[in-house]
């Protein structure tokens, strides 16, 4: 056998894990068609053989929003304000809960789907090679598509409210920045999901905690209530939850008022990038040989 020097004659080289970091983004780009098809598959196969079909996209967030409006808004009388209103504008509770729910659903769905990447696809991944990252990314896009459709419905309700004059908010130019917060939520969901996916390969226990942790997390995030409910002196601690600044910023962009502080926004971006990059690195380490363990 010749020495290492003639490695150049070969196109591909399969070697043991050396701890080197190759994210394989170029390879992932080569497989973008697959990402697209995976996303389409996830999205379109969900509502086959149902009577209501695509209506199911709207029913869950709609019902949750109604429940939130009744329970937290009307019975518990939680404020649906992130800060003391600057004028006489009050965001209607229904819209307030709806946007929060849609965004939270997006985040928690991406996280849950990503966390299950290895377990759900173990059979396929054990038989065929493709960039493993294609699966969670496709799932994230299919969840995004769902969220976009829901947001369109939200937009329609919002517009109807504004036009009919029963809603005391106006459309604001800050809306243009709204997609940024959606993108941020996606990255965070993916990042944390990837870390959990890697851990569940060896320790299935973590998979069981995810649902419970997400539920708890929901109540630590201003989705069912406005930020105003949180006592002033706890705000600093409360804002450590990276979803909170994203959520309040999203509502600010959406309604043109609310709570935005540059410091917290920067903190949320730092946290998001930390989780996302960290998740990608861990995932990259694990993907190569996870089929041996799972």
């Amino acid at each position: 056998m010749d020495s290492v020097s003639d490695k150049e004659q070969w196109k591909y080289c399969i070697e043991p894990e050396r701890g080197r970091l190759e994210l394989g983004l170029r390879n992932l780009w080569r497989y973008r068609g697959l990402v697209h098809l995976f996303a389409k598959r996830d999205f379109t196969s969900k509502y086959r053989q149902t009577v209501l079909g695509p209506l199911w996209m709207f029913i869950p967030p709609f019902l949750t929003t109604i429940v939130f409006t009744v329970v937290f808004g009307n019975i518990a009388k939680f404020p649906t304000l992130d800060s003391v209103a600057s004028g006489d504008m009050v965001v209607p509770a229904f819209l307030f809960y709806m946007i929060g729910n849609i965004l939270w659903e997006l985040f928690s769905n991406i996280l849950k789907h990503t966390a299950k990447t290895f377990l759900a696809n173990a059979r396929i991944m054990g038989k065929v090679y493709y960039p493993r990252l294609a699966s969670p990314i496709a799932a994230a896009f299919s969840d995004l598509a769902m969220a976009v459709i829901r947001l369109l419905l939200f937009g329609a309700l919002f517009a109807v409210g504004v036009v009919c004059g029963s809603v005391s908010v106006r459309m604001s130019w800050t809306m243009l920045f709204f997609p940024l917060t959606v993108f941020q939520l996606m990255l965070l969901g993916l990042g944390i999901g990837l870390i959990i996916a890697v851990l569940t390969v060896k320790y299935r226990d973590i998979g069981f905690i995810v649902d419970f942790a997400l539920q708890l997390w929901l109540y630590l995030t201003p989705v069912a209530y406005g930020l105003q409910l949180v006592p002033k002196r706890w705000i600093g601690l409360y804002m450590l939850n990276p979803v909170t600044p994203i959520m309040t910023t999203a509502r600010y962009f959406c309604f043109g008022e609310g709570y935005v502080q540059v410091g917290y926004v920067i903190w949320s971006w730092v946290a998001v990038l930390f989780f996302f990059v960290g998740g990608c690195i861990l995932f990259n380490r694990a993907e190569k040989t996870f089929v041996d363990i799972i």
């Binding site: 043991p16 396929i124 991944m125 065929v128 089929v291």
Partner: peptide, 27 residues
Amino acid sequence: LARITLPTVGRILLNGHVASMIEVGTG
């Protein structure tokens, strides 16, 4: 060979793309 998992020792050099037909119905 199909890159589904990595070797512990040694290396595999290839001059082309590998397609695996391991259990064709999967996927």
